[in-house]
């Protein structure tokens, strides 16, 4: 399914517009419309203790957001993309998910656009959104500082769709992931298809070799499927801790983004103690992360 409509919620933090600009390339893949959403948190304007509601404050914020969005809207329309402005008062996560559903968007773009050393890539709002979203969600990380060996590096993720690392398993989720990837034809220069192979020490060497060969063959099959749809693809088998391997390979291959099936679960406790791989990747990798449910 092509990405025709994107929901871009923003708090107008630094580099938000730069992050939006990185999506313009999706026009080649069929992007027609961007919904620019600004949620004025109800708690910031409502429930003044014994007072009521800060109507003037709400109006001021609406006007400010409108002016900023109109400027962005101009850039989008210059690139042939329609942009619709939505400014609402409410609970941010609820409003973002509700608007994504009502507007039937194909992709939600969330996350901090700038992350400096020690900060989190995924805040609590983003975590809730990626946990609950029923549509693909891109955790955008436009500019990041991250530690590699002993060095502190700064990276700008401005061509995120060019060389994605796609983490696969053999489930239905992977089919959806590949489907999404194929919709980006014309934008993706090359895709690394990654599978983490676990060496089972209880099995003999022959059996391990057999499973490894089978995994490689399956990976190659995925690659062929992509190639036949016009996307260059390269298979990579990793081994070891899944998360570390994925991040290692993504760095070695200079991937521009990680795409992964969304494994977060919407359960009270699991949400609090979310150790799901997709969440960990979004949280720990310096690369933009696209989670496909």
């Amino acid at each position: 399914m092509p990405v025709e409509k994107i929901l871009f919620p923003t708090k107008f933090r630094e580099l938000s517009f730069d992050s939006l600009e990185t999506l313009l390339v999706l026009k080649k893949a069929g992007l027609r419309e961007v919904i620019l959403l600004h949620v004025i948190s109800r708690e910031e304007v409502g429930f003044v203790p014994f007072g009521g509601y800060l109507k003037k404050e709400e109006e001021k914020r609406r006007q400010e957001a409108t002016i900023r969005f109109e400027d962005w809207q101009k850039t989008l329309s210059e690139n042939g993309i329609d942009a619709h402005i939505k400014i609402v008062v409410g609970e941010p996560v609820y409003e973002i998910l509700k608007n994504a559903e009502n507007e039937r968007v194909d992709l939600i773009v969330v996350g901090r656009k700038k992350r400096i050393e020690g900060g989190a890539f995924v805040g609590s709002y983003t975590h809730k959104i990626i946990t609950r979203s029923k549509v693909p969600t891109l955790v955008s990380k436009y500019m990041v500082q991250f530690q590699w060996d002993d060095a502190m590096l700064t990276k700008t993720n401005d061509r995120l769709f060019e060389v994605p690392l796609v983490t696969v398993d053999w489930t239905e989720r992977t089919q959806r992931l590949l489907g999404f990837l194929m919709s980006l034809k014309g934008i993706v220069r090359k895709a690394f298809i990654f599978y983490n192979f676990t060496v089972d020490s209880s099995k003999d060497k022959t059996e391990v070799a057999r499973v490894k060969a089978e995994s490689s063959a399956r990976l190659e099959k995925y690659c062929e499927k992509l190639r036949s749809s016009g996307i260059e693809a390269e298979a990579h088998l990793g081994s070891g801790g899944m998360l570390d391997e994925m991040i290692r390979v993504s760095r070695e291959r200079k991937a521009s983004m990680i795409m992964i099936g969304n494994t977060s679960e919407e359960r009270f406790l699991k949400n609090m103690l979310d150790r799901s791989l997709s969440y960990q990747v979004a949280k720990l990798s310096e690369l933009p992360t696209l989670l496909v449910p």
Partner: peptide
């Protein structure tokens, strides 16, 4: 409005949803 806590909550919700108070 300040006599009882729910007064301001009701006022806040009414104003948020477009009712002039």
């Amino acid at each position: 409005y300040i006599g009882n806590a729910p007064n301001f909550m009701v006022r806040s919700i009414a104003e948020e949803t477009g009712t002039e108070m």
